[in-house]
Computed example of a mutant assay.
Amino acid sequence: MASIDTHNPLLGPADMAGRIGSVLTAATRVATDWQETRRTHKALSALTDRELDDIGLTRADIARVSRRRW
């Protein structure tokens, strides 16, 4: 009968906690980035075409700028 050794001394409880922490940190970062993108998009969308022109943007630029993709 074959058996699988699932005990790996390199992957102890501390490592598992670190991985969980990393996942939570990444999820928090994604949520924060999404919220900032949404806020920026909303603020730029509230500007008039003239105000956007004053800062060198058009309505077509709003999505790209709010996602920080230059």
Rank of each mutant, 00 (worst) to 15 (best):
M1G: 11
M1F: 09
M1C: 06
A2S: 14
A2D: 14
A2L: 14
S3Q: 09
S3H: 07
S3P: 01
S3F: 09
I4F: 15
I4P: 10
I4N: 13
D5K: 10
T6G: 14
T6N: 15
T6M: 15
T6K: 14
T6F: 15
H7R: 13
H7C: 10
H7G: 11
N8L: 12
N8S: 12
N8C: 10
N8H: 11
P9D: 15
P9W: 12
L10W: 08
L10D: 12
L10Q: 11
L11D: 08
L11W: 09
G12I: 03
G12S: 10
G12P: 04
P13S: 07
P13M: 04
P13E: 10
A14D: 11
A14C: 03
A14T: 09
M16N: 01
M16K: 09
M16P: 00
G18T: 02
G18V: 02
I20W: 01
I20E: 05
I20G: 00
G21P: 00
S22Q: 05
V23K: 03
V23Q: 04
L24E: 06
L24Q: 05
T25A: 02
T25E: 02
A26P: 00
A27I: 01
A27V: 04
A27K: 03
A27M: 06
T28H: 00
T28A: 04
T28E: 05
R29F: 00
R29A: 03
R29H: 00
V30H: 02
V30D: 04
V30P: 00
A31L: 06
D33Q: 08
W34N: 13
W34S: 14
W34V: 12
Q35R: 13
Q35Y: 11
E36V: 12
E36R: 14
E36H: 13
E36P: 04
E36F: 10
T37G: 12
R39T: 15
R39K: 15
T40C: 15
H41D: 15
H41Y: 15
A43R: 12
A43P: 09
L44Y: 09
L44N: 08
L44R: 07
L44Q: 06
S45C: 06
A46E: 07
A46T: 04
A46P: 03
L47F: 05
T48H: 02
T48S: 11
D49Y: 03
D49W: 02
R50T: 08
E51N: 03
E51P: 01
E51V: 02
L52R: 02
L52Q: 03
L52H: 02
D53P: 02
D54Y: 08
D54C: 10
I55G: 11
I55L: 12
G56P: 11
G56S: 13
G56R: 12
L57Q: 07
R59D: 07
R59E: 08
R59T: 08
A60F: 07
D61T: 06
I62S: 07
I62G: 06
R64E: 09
S66P: 06
S66F: 04
S66N: 05
R67S: 11
R67A: 13
R67D: 09
R68P: 03
R68G: 07
R69E: 13
R69D: 11
W70Y: 14
